[in-house]
Design a protein around this nucleic acid. Structure first.
Lengths: 138, 138
DNA sequence: GGAGCAGCTTACGTTAACGTAAACGTAAGT
DNA sequence: ACTTACGTTTACGTTAACGTAAGCTGCTCC
C-alpha cells in the first residue's frame, strides 16, 4: 500500500489554507502537525492536511491550541487496550459537552439578533412612514 | 419610573458569575461595562448584568473582546437615523454569518466525534468478545 | 484607636499565538 | 559566478486578556 499520493510544500499548504509559513512551523513545533522531512525540508501528506483542517476548525471555534492538540490527538490513537479506549470515550463525551454548550450559546445569540433586527426594521419603517398606525397621538 | 430595582457590588457580581474583580474592572476599563459610581465605588444595575452575560457568552464562543464590544454595543444604540439603522442591520448580518460558520463547524466536529465513538465502541466490543462474527478467520 | 474588611488605582508580570527580522543552505536559471 | 526563489533555524517583538502585588481610602466592630 503506497501510504499516500501527493505531497505538498509548506508554501502550497499555507497558500491553500490562507495561513502563514510561520503558523505551520509553529503548529509543528507544538506538536499539532508532524510532517516528514526530505533532508531539511518539510513534506506534507494528506494526513497532515486533514489534521490541519481539524486544527483550523478548532481555531474558528475558539478553542486554545493546547486543547485542539488533545482533540486532534484523539484521532490518531491506535486501537490500544481497554483502559485507553475507556479514556478516549470519556474525552469524547467531554468535547461533546463543550460543543453543546457552544451550540446553545450560538442559538441564544441568534435569537437575540433576531429580536434586534426586528426592532431595527420597525424603527426604519417608522422613519419611512412617520404617520403609521399606533403613532404619536394627535 | 424607578429605572431599576436592585444593585450589586463588584464582589457580588464576580462571585455570581465566577469571575474575578480584576476581570470586571478590566471590562469596564475597555468599555464593555459602564457601571455607575457611588463616590468611588462601582454600582452595578440589572442592565450591567445583562451586558455581562452577553460578554461572557461571547467569550465562551471564542470571540475576542474587541468584537464582543461591538456586538454588545449594538444592543444599546438608540433608534437613531436611517443611516445608523442600515449600518446596524449590516452588522447583524455579519455576526449572523460568523455564528452560522461556527455552527457548521460544530456540526462537522460532532459528526466526526460520532464516528470516532463508534470506532471506539467497536474496538471495545472486539476486546470483550474476541471471537465475534466476521472475526479473525478460523 | 487600631484591626480588619471591601473597595480603589497604578503598574509591572504572564501566557498564548503568532509576527518579524537576521543569517544561512540549496537548487535552478543566466 | 551570481542572482533568484524557496526553504531552514534562532531569537526577539507584539497583542490580548487578564494575574498579581503595592499602596491608599473609608467603614465598622471591638
Amino acid at each position: 500500500m503506497p501510504t499516500d499520493g501527493r505531497t505538498w510544500t509548506i508554501t502550497e499548504l499555507a497558500d491553500e489554507f490562507g495561513i502563514t509559513l510561520r503558523t505551520l512551523r509553529f503548529y509543528e513545533e507544538h506538536g499539532l502537525l508532524a510532517p516528514e522531512r526530505r533532508g531539511t525540508q518539510r513534506v506534507f501528506r494528506t494526513g497532515d492536511r486533514v489534521r490541519l483542517e481539524l486544527v483550523l476548525r478548532g481555531k474558528r471555534l475558539g478553542f486554545p491550541l493546547e486543547e485542539i492538540k488533545k482533540i486532534v490527538g484523539m484521532y490518531d490513537s491506535e486501537p490500544g487496550e481497554a483502559g485507553q479506549l475507556a479514556y478516549l470515550l470519556d474525552q469524547i463525551a467531554v468535547r461533546r459537552g463543550e460543543l453543546e454548550q457552544r451550540r446553545s450559546d450560538i442559538d441564544q445569540t441568534m435569537a437575540e439578533l433576531d429580536v434586534l433586527e426586528r426592532r431595527c426594521r420597525d424603527d426604519l419603517a417608522r422613519l419611512g412612514s412617520p404617520a403609521a398606525d399606533g403613532g404619536v397621538r394627535a
